[in-house]
Amino acid sequence: MQDFWKQNQQKIAPWLFLAPGIIMFLLYVIYPIIGSFQISFYDWDGLGQKEWVGVNNYIELMDDEAFYTSLKNNVIWLVLYMLAIPAGLFVALFLNQTVFGIRLYKSLFFFPFVISQVVVGLVFSWFYDPSNGLMNIALEAIGFDAIPVLADERYVTYGIIAAGLWPQTAYCMILYLTGLNAIDPEQIEAARLDNAKGWRMLWYVILPQLRPATFIAMVVTVIGALRSFDLISIMTDGGPWGSSRVLAFYMYEQAFSEYGFRMGYGAAIAVVLFLIMMVYITFFLYKMYRDERGQ
Rank of each mutant, 00 (worst) to 15 (best):
Q2A: 07
W5F: 10
K6R: 14
N8S: 02
Q10K: 13
P14R: 05
P14V: 05
L18P: 07
L18T: 06
L27Q: 10
I30K: 13
Y31Q: 13
I39V: 14
S40M: 03
G46T: 11
G48Q: 06
K50N: 03
W52Y: 15
N56K: 15
N56E: 15
L61D: 09
D64N: 15
A66I: 13
F67S: 01
T69Y: 02
L71S: 11
K72F: 12
N73K: 10
I76T: 12
L78Y: 04
L78R: 03
M82P: 00
M82L: 14
A87C: 13
V91K: 11
L93Y: 03
Q97D: 08
L104Y: 10
F113M: 14
F113Q: 12
S116W: 04
G121Y: 12
S125T: 15
F127E: 05
D129Q: 07
L139W: 08
A141V: 03
I142H: 07
G143P: 03
G143F: 06
F144M: 13
R154K: 13
Y158P: 01
I160D: 05
I160C: 06
A163N: 04
T169Q: 04
L175S: 04
Y176P: 03
A182V: 00
A182H: 12
P185R: 09
K197H: 08
R200K: 13
Y204H: 12
Y204G: 04
I206R: 10
P208N: 05
Q209N: 06
R211G: 00
R211N: 07
P212Q: 11
A225C: 02
D230E: 14
I234N: 06
T236K: 07
D237P: 01
W241C: 03
R245E: 13
V246W: 00
F249Q: 11
M251V: 02
Y259E: 05
R262L: 14
G264K: 09
G266H: 11
G266P: 07
A270F: 06
V271F: 11
F274L: 14
L275V: 15
M278K: 01
Y280L: 15
